[in-house]
Design a protein around this nucleic acid. Structure first.
Length: 539
RNA sequence: GCGCUAGUAGCUCAGUUGGAUAGAGUACAACACUACGAAUGUUGGGGUCAGGGGUUCGAAUCCUCUCUAGCGCGCCA
């Protein structure tokens, strides 16, 4: 158990002895910002003063009398009633051996036996992934990694809209480009895809089958199937390069098969009414502020209906929670879908939607929109080529998903201190380098000789990691990991400057500091892994 | 017009769910290596927390109104 958790339990027991029963989660232990306030602090006396009918300071004194002080050096009451804890040194340094023993499992949460399905990217296979997808991809994958590490069973899922109009437009666009190659006159479809990538697909098909495609029984069908395969292969490849692997690719067509949509209409019957020939779902009975058309007057389905089928399908596969990572322009969609799921008897909480705000790519102080290659949007592939996967993934998750993000391309390519990725990776490489040059010295895991301020500060930060993981997991907030990484890196550099690690005339201090180096390296590596960013030993 | 999200240092953003003197990075200024990676560290200035009102021991945080920005409000997806 980490230090904060045991303090919380300690306080809980003290309160219980005083006749007040509180949940552990209601007790907040803060890291003191000011060393004069000790190592940790709590405001519990202020919060529970009402229960006692006494002044907060008096309550604080009462609590202190009932605490188990085994790991505590001394305790102070301060200000309006804060309790400040000054820990015994060994209760801090114990963390070092814990980290070294647990290695890549340090910070891992307990098994929850709780199945989560995280759906993200889900871009239509009609072209290359662009930077808009890149942020959602980085955040979706990091959330998945964090949840997994925290003990959830996570499935990453990609939904392929292969039944809609866009796919037909893709087929027509490819056909037009293909005819272009053959010199057959044709008109480019009105809603077609004009990008260079579609031309490339047509060229690829031409290389594969020559001029025979037009003689096929159903050329358009062929262009559709083959085109989609090619597009999907590209997407998979881009994602793999971006260190993302989906467990499941779900096809809309497959989900629609066996009359699933018609069955869904029958199932929802009592929530459906007719309006001017259209079928409308009465979502206002639940959370929505407006009823939604699910079948148009001409008999076509709106996108919403198969989407309901898809979400019900996911839930029927046994997930306890669905998380959709979507662009912020989908926020109107949330209550709509939750309402539909509630019609199936699910709680509104089985679906959680993480909205990702827009990204602006910035270069030379101005917005950078266009791909130099295709003339369309700046693609994920180009981004990775330009700034590297590490920088791309790290930059996308450094800010809360709900906020707009300005991605500074100039900064991301800089291999210098002001680039936060290099700052963190450099810290890791430095530690690796020190450990390497002292590989003949035995490492002391117990941290016996650690007493300098920068050493103890670093230890306290390392001790927080399991807690940071829990919070990041609970809030689906990868940026908290990113902030934490920066904090660790900062203290590693600070420690490194204040304390010379290798001193062959003083092996006992050296081996303790090597232990701290190793522990720090492990934590940095574990944290970076949660963001899909590499932790190199050499740079 | 209604709804969602946001407004914190010159810029990009945190702020542990209502707590102690509002913090980082960046930019700016000054200092520090004959040493384990200076891709670093230390120090400094910089704030009407968009604005008004309210709730209480205590508000950047909760309530309310106003202003500003982005996005939604389709028988589009």
């Amino acid at each position: 158990m980490d230090i904060k958790e045991s303090l919380k339990l300690n306080i809980k027991n003290a309160l219980k002895a005083l006749g007040v029963d509180l949940d552990v989660n209601e007790i907040v232990i803060e890291d003191s910002k000011d060393p004069a306030h000790g190592d940790y602090a709590t405001n519990i006396a202020l919060k529970s003063a009402r229960n006692f009918g006494k002044s907060p300071r008096d309550v604080a004194s009462l609590i202190i009398e009932n605490l188990d002080k085994a790991s505590i050096d001394h305790i102070e009451v301060a200000g309006p009633g804060f309790i400040n804890f000054f820990m015994k040194q060994d209760s801090l340094t114990n963390v070092v051996s814990k980290i070294i023993d647990e290695k890549e499992n340090y910070g891992r949460g307990e098994k929850k036996n709780f199945k989560v399905n995280v759906e993200f990217v889900s871009a239509n296979p009609t072209g290359d992934l662009h930077v808009g997808h890149a942020r959602g991809a980085a955040i979706g994958d990091s959330i998945s990694r964090i949840l997994e590490f925290d003990g959830y069973d996570v499935t990453r899922e990609y939904y392929i809209n292969d039944a809609g109009n866009q796919i037909n437009n893709l087929a027509k666009s490819i056909e037009a480009r293909y005819k272009e190659i053959l010199g057959v006159p044709c008109e480019f479809p009105e809603d077609g895809y004009h990008g260079e990538d579609v031309k490339a697909v047509a060229r690829k098909i031409y290389e594969e089958v020559g001029d025979k495609a037009l003689t096929y029984e159903n050329p358009l069908e062929f262009f559709k199937e083959r085109g989609m395969e090619i597009e999907l292969d590209k997407i998979r490849e881009d994602l793999a390069n971006y260190r993302i692997k989906f467990d499941i690719y779900s096809s809309e067509r497959k989900i629609r098969s066996n009359n699933a949509v018609e069955k869904e209409i029958a199932y929802l019957d009592k929530h459906i009414y007719k309006d001017e020939g259209a079928l409308v779902l009465k979502t206002t009975d639940y959370l929505d502020d407006k009823d939604r058309v699910i079948v148009k007057g001409n008999g076509d389905y709106t996108y919403f209906l198969p989407d309901i089928v898809y979400h019900v399908n996911k839930l029927s596969r046994g997930y306890d929670l669905l998380i959709d990572v979507l662009g912020a322009d989908h926020h109107g969609y949330i209550n709509r879908m939750k309402s539909a799921l509630m019609m199936h008897g699910y709680s509104k909480d089985v679906l959680e939607i993480e909205l990702i705000q827009m990204v602006r790519m910035m270069k030379d102080g101005a917005e950078f929109k266009l791909s130099k290659r295709t003339g369309n949007g700046y693609t994920l592939r180009e981004l990775c080529e330009d700034v590297g996967v590490d920088a791309a993934r790290f930059f996308f998750v450094t800010r809360a998903a709900s906020g707009h993000l300005d991605f500074d391309l100039d900064l991301a390519v800089k291999q210098s201190s002001d680039n936060p990725v290099y700052y963190a990776q450099y810290a890791h490489a430095r530690l690796a380098s020190v450990l390497e040059s002292a590989s003949d010295i035995t490492i002391d895991k117990l941290g016996n000789e650690l007493s300098k301020k920068s050493e103890l500060d670093l230890i306290k930060t390392l001790a927080k990691f399991p807690d940071v993981v829990k919070v990041a997991s609970k809030e689906r907030a990868p940026y908290k990991i990113a902030n934490y990484i920066h904090e660790v890196a900062e203290q590693v550099h600070s420690f490194y400057t204040e304390c010379r690690v290798i001193d062959r005339s003083n092996l006992s201090v050296t081996s303790s500091r090597l232990g701290l180096c190793l522990a720090s390296k492990i934590v940095l590596s574990n944290a970076l892994k949660l963001l899909g960013v590499s932790a190199p030993d050499h740079m």
